[in-house]
Amino acid sequence: MASERRPRRWRRRAWIAAGVALAVLVAGLGYSAWFGSDQAIKVRRWGAGDVMVLASGDRTVTLADTPATRKPGTYWLEWSGAGTMLGEVTSRGGGKVTRAVLDGAVPSIGTSGSLNVAPPGDPEVAWGLDYSEITVPTELGPAPAWHVPGDGTTWFVAVHGQNARRKAVQKVLPVVHRLGMPFLAITYRNDEGAPASPDGLIHLGDTEWRDLEAAVRTARGLGARRVVLYGTSMGGVVAGQFLARSPLADLVSAVIMDAPPYDLERVSEWNAARFGMPAFAGWLSSRVVEWRIGVDQDALHLIRHPPAVRPPLLLIHTDDDTEVPVGSSRELAAAGPRLGWDIRYEEFPGGDHTEAWNVDRPRYDRLVRDFLTAHAGAVP
């Protein structure tokens, strides 16, 4: 009798252990999926960074040596409402990295700020260009936009990415301005100063395109006959959905997309791997995202569901992008002939997400200038 009870007790304990393990696994996957969905759709306001100036010299600044501060190329150190454009690394050693100061004041020792890929402030602060702040009447309420005037009737309408600010699209402003094109950097729902979405969440381009439509309508009212759309990161998806759904899409003469995350399922799996989770966690995160915001992510896929209007597209991506896999842009470019879409693909070595301009500004500016000259009637 005792010998019969012992196996039953062990079997019961084994089933309990298996149940506990399964519950832990399910809870872990559930947490991972919810965490992943937060990264995709939760609105965030980024505060000040933690980069401190350790030394400064004649047009140089020395910072602690980190993966961010040692990147090659052009970046900005933003501090106390000011900004300094930093160039290439001039020396490195002893846990420190020294970079050239290309523009702006040299911050003093002890200055604390953030290292950014985009210029600080408005067009006047960033590039010394006159601008006005106009209001775009969206369906949710007024949204501010920066307007830099130009002589042409083809406007350059720029859309930033998820949880970014409109200053992020200013990197191309100098080359666009030299071509005489009016420049409009828009905001959309959930941006600072713009109306919030009804649920307070990001909709990955599925609703934000309507705010772009309102901006294009506003530009038309101010004299625009044609527009060029420029979208960085999620801004590219917003532009794609505008082309797919807006009755104003025929006004678009050309599009530039920089690292657009149009294949959201793939992005979720990619980022799950970054955090050491299985691909299934990324798939599950995508399902949670769809449940929370009521969006069919597959409908945003530019290859499986190409936009109704497909003007010439300049597609840009860096091969070291850790947020959006570069393979998705390669596939979109390869699908261009089959889709009847004139796509020019340019890949940049090095640089993280939307950092192609930073790692090679001359090449980026040249590509934008030549593309606008060929497809938007711009005169160099």
Rank of each mutant, 00 (worst) to 15 (best):
D321W: 03
N163V: 08
E88N: 14
P380M: 04
Q39N: 13
P311A: 08
L86S: 00
G87H: 04
A145M: 09
A376E: 06
D342S: 12
I134R: 08
H353G: 02
L179T: 03
V255C: 07
E355Q: 11
A14F: 13
V53F: 00
R6M: 15
T207Q: 15
G104A: 08
A14P: 03
V157T: 04
V53S: 00
R9Y: 01
T62W: 03
Y364V: 05
A100P: 00
I293F: 01
P311R: 12
G236N: 01
R274G: 14
A376Q: 06
E347Y: 04
D263F: 09
E208K: 09
I316H: 03
P278A: 08
L284V: 13
L248K: 03
T74Y: 11
D352Q: 11
R8H: 07
P306K: 03
T154Y: 01
R310H: 07
D206N: 14
T60W: 01
D263H: 12
M181N: 02
R6Q: 11
D258H: 04
P261H: 06
L314W: 00
T232D: 14
S286A: 14
H177A: 15
G30D: 04
S285Q: 03
V24N: 09
K96I: 00
P174Q: 05
R363T: 13
R344H: 09
V359R: 04
S268G: 12
V289I: 15
T66D: 00
P149E: 03
S233M: 00
T66N: 02
A2K: 10
E208Y: 09
G57K: 07
G49V: 02
P261A: 06
W127N: 07
E192C: 02
P311K: 10
A259F: 09
M1E: 11
Q170F: 06
A118N: 12
P325I: 03
V136F: 09
I186N: 01
A259K: 05
R166T: 00
E269W: 00
S114L: 05
L129S: 09
L332W: 06
I316T: 09
D122E: 06
T74M: 15
T318P: 02
T60M: 04
